[in-house]
Design a protein around this nucleic acid. Sequence first.
DNA 1: ACGCTCAATCTCGTATGCATGAATGGATCG
DNA 2: CGATCCATTCATGCATACGAGATTGAGCGT
Lengths: 245, 245
Amino acid sequence: MTRPSPRTDIAHEALKQAILERALQPGTKLPEDEIGAHFGMSRTLVRAVLAKLQSEGLVDARPKRTAIVAQPTLAEARDVFEVRRGLEAQAVDLVIKRWKPSFGAELEGLVREEDAARERHEEHVAGRLGGEFHIRLAKLSGNVLLERYMSELVTRCSLILAVYGSPHSHDHSGPNEHIEIIAALRAGDAAKAIGLMDAHMSVVERRAMHDTDPASVALGDVLARYAGAIAGRDGAIPLKQKRAK
Amino acid sequence: MTRPSPRTDIAHEALKQAILERALQPGTKLPEDEIGAHFGMSRTLVRAVLAKLQSEGLVDARPKRTAIVAQPTLAEARDVFEVRRGLEAQAVDLVIKRWKPSFGAELEGLVREEDAARERHEEHVAGRLGGEFHIRLAKLSGNVLLERYMSELVTRCSLILAVYGSPHSHDHSGPNEHIEIIAALRAGDAAKAIGLMDAHMSVVERRAMHDTDPASVALGDVLARYAGAIAGRDGAIPLKQKRAK
DNA sequence: ACGCTCAATCTCGTATGCATGAATGGATCG
DNA sequence: CGATCCATTCATGCATACGAGATTGAGCGT
């Protein structure tokens, strides 16, 4: 699961997780210099990372201002969930068409992992696995593009839940719904599976209520923490000096 | 419709059109230097443009090789059409839910434009307008994200048709099908509209047969032509020298 | 005391340079 | 005569430099 580890991927992953876990609250400024300093790379690369995060809807980078963590509006949230419902339905449909017995075990494995994480009170991990379920489902559809889109949608939904959702139920009410969906898939009951999925989405979506104000965070500390967790080391990474000839 | 005109948008639009019109055949190398020279910008910006085109599936830019015009595989083509069918259905559904009388006129206007272009034998323009119909439909759904996805999908479909499709029927068999879809939308008949749309997609999709080899093209000539058409001037644009203090 | 203007500073936009890795053509060997 | 290996050339990866726009804080005026 872990990437090859080009520094640029580390920075991308670190920022993504930091945003999704709300360690970097919406509205937080993300200056290219500072980020580059902490990850040991130049603004050129940071810029690429921020561009990618923007295309994923996690960062808002307007023409000549400092990029900030995205603050999804309710309208955007509605759009995201709407499209996601549609693609989830399609994913379910395709998965049933191309069903193999191994699929059930694979999905159940994920649900178990999520359960385990939740029992360990690792809410963030559990939340991530909850989203992973849907991405895996899309992957099982055999459609790479669908998987990509679903991945992006799940990410955006996570941010939306982090912003508008109730503080601690990070992504899902419980994995029970996932289990039911798996059962319907296994039975080949497309209509029921889609119905369940839709209900599931409703539950997730119906947590668009609260609101919070973007407080200032110690960007440095957060980055160091996340970069460390991912790269396996901590603290700021110094820029690689000119190597000896 | 025309952009504000940052050079970077011009380059992006020019390359996009050149690729979709098959003036730059799949496999054609796209060196950053050369492109930059022709659009009067540095490799830094070209790189950003190429990255965007890659994310749109029009360019293939592998780690350390020169970027090339994308060569979609049949598997990719299948994925694209599959997802597009799903989103088209959803778009139709939403448009009917939020229908306003003005929608019909708007869509019909596009169809008429397409007809006119086709009568003038401007196949490329007609093809573009044919795709535009679907993007507009998605826009009328009121879902910005859906519009974005549809836009990307239509673009990719255009490339696929350019590669695998029959030489001259550039995007659509005819606007008749569009007219029928509009009628169903106006009648609020979601099932029929979705059925028509699906049939329409089938027709478009069923043109995955031929193949062609990537011949070498005079990149310079093509770029000059397309840059001229978009920017309103022609020829290579010299890099802006250091301006006097 | 409050608001406005302007200057100092913080970032971004973009070009360019240097180093490294791929592509290519020629020379050599079988 | 053909294939392979190596050197040269080309194109990219990345950092850095410089100029310009945005931000903000201080000083002035009312």
